[in-house]
């Protein structure tokens, strides 16, 4: 649905994008995550035709967005980080205004507006002025506005910023519903955990390029693989266990954390089973043997802080 290749953009001395490559499959809910200043908004502005890149290509639904900007506008809907509201318009008028901006008029536009207002649970507010809406309602109206021309791709730039937890949850559910209806959604945020709960795919951007991408399950697996094995030993056989671990060449580091032994282990699940067998064979009473659970936030911090552990993780990829 969206394919970006070698996107570069420089503002003066600042290289905002340095060869961004990205691909989003149809029907995906893609989380575009990165710290502030990583290049998310620049990339989104280029995708939506608000900014011209120095180099690279953008393709939306098979249309070259840079060569055919007018044609491609039918294919995406855009929700910026700021709502962009006309406070002195009523909700229905606001929707009808944008419907006509996309060339929809008359009964078609009216029906589409009613349908979307109902879907976003705003039908009761159709005759209210936009400035009387709450922040959450405004965000839903903004989403309805972006869907007015029934685009295939939705581009949302930090849509949940400033929302309370309940509104945020409702908004996420709405995005999931849209995704289930077949829309492809690109949603950016600087908070990974926020996207992790709803996205099917994720791309981490830092210093203007994607440094980690894939499906949510793949990434979680990568995170898990990079986490240490935690071994609990019963009956005071810790020394024996340490000897077994030291003798295994797949074990990189061994750290004792309270009652557990944390082992950085470079192997597959089969290797893990083999290690467990060795420990048990050596007479160690293993009462616990498991991977530390993946924490997306910590891996995000590692990657975007250019931590040394990241290098280990990347070499394993």
């Amino acid at each position: 649905m969206l394919k970006i290749e070698g996107l570069k953009k420089r503002f003066g001395n600042f290289q905002a994008l340095s060869g961004l490559d990205m691909e989003i499959e149809e029907g995906a809910l893609y989380g575009f995550v990165g710290p502030n200043g990583a290049g998310k908004t620049t990339a989104i502005r280029i995708i939506t035709g608000l900014l011209k890149p120095d180099e690279g290509t953008v393709e939306i639904a098979g249309i070259d967005a840079l060569r055919e900007p007018r044609r491609v506008r039918d294919e995406f809907g855009y929700v910026p980080d700021e709502f962009g509201m006309y406070d002195n318009l009523k909700v229905r008028e606001y929707m009808e205004f944008f419907a006509s901006a996309y060339g929809l008029d008359g009964l078609v536009a009216r029906n589409r507006c009613e349908e979307l207002l109902a879907q976003m649970k705003l039908e009761e507010w159709a005759d209210a002025f936009v400035d009387s809406l709450s922040r959450g309602m405004k965000q839903r109206l903004c989403l309805a506005r972006a869907l007015i021309h029934d685009p295939k791709l939705l581009v949302l730039d930090e849509p949940t910023s400033g929302m309370d937890p309940r509104t945020r949850l409702e908004f996420k559910e709405m995005l999931k519903e849209l995704c289930a209806e077949g829309k492809t959604i690109l949603v950016s945020s600087h908070i990974l955990s926020e996207l992790a709960q709803m996205c099917t795919d994720i791309g981490v951007i830092d210093a203007g390029r994607i440094i980690l991408s894939g499906s949510m399950s793949e990434i979680l697996q990568k995170v898990n693989e990079s986490n240490p094995l935690l071994i609990r030993v019963a009956g005071g056989k810790r020394e024996q266990a340490l000897n077994v671990l030291k003798s295994d060449e797949r074990v990189r580091t061994v750290v004792i954390r309270g009652g557990e032994i944390a082992v950085r282990f470079g192997g597959t699940e089969r290797d893990e089973a083999d290690l467990l067998r060795k420990l048990v064979g050596a007479g160690v009473a293993v009462s616990g043997f498991f991977r530390e659970q993946g924490d997306l936030e910590s891996i995000f911090m590692q990657i975007t802080n250019h931590d040394t552990e990241k290098v280990v993780l990347r070499s394993e990829e």
Binding site: T48, G49, R70, R73, F83, G84, M85
Partner: peptide, 14 residues
Amino acid sequence: ERQTLELLLTTKMT
């Protein structure tokens, strides 16, 4: 200033 210009520019309007 209202942040609506970008919205207009992403529509079919010239």
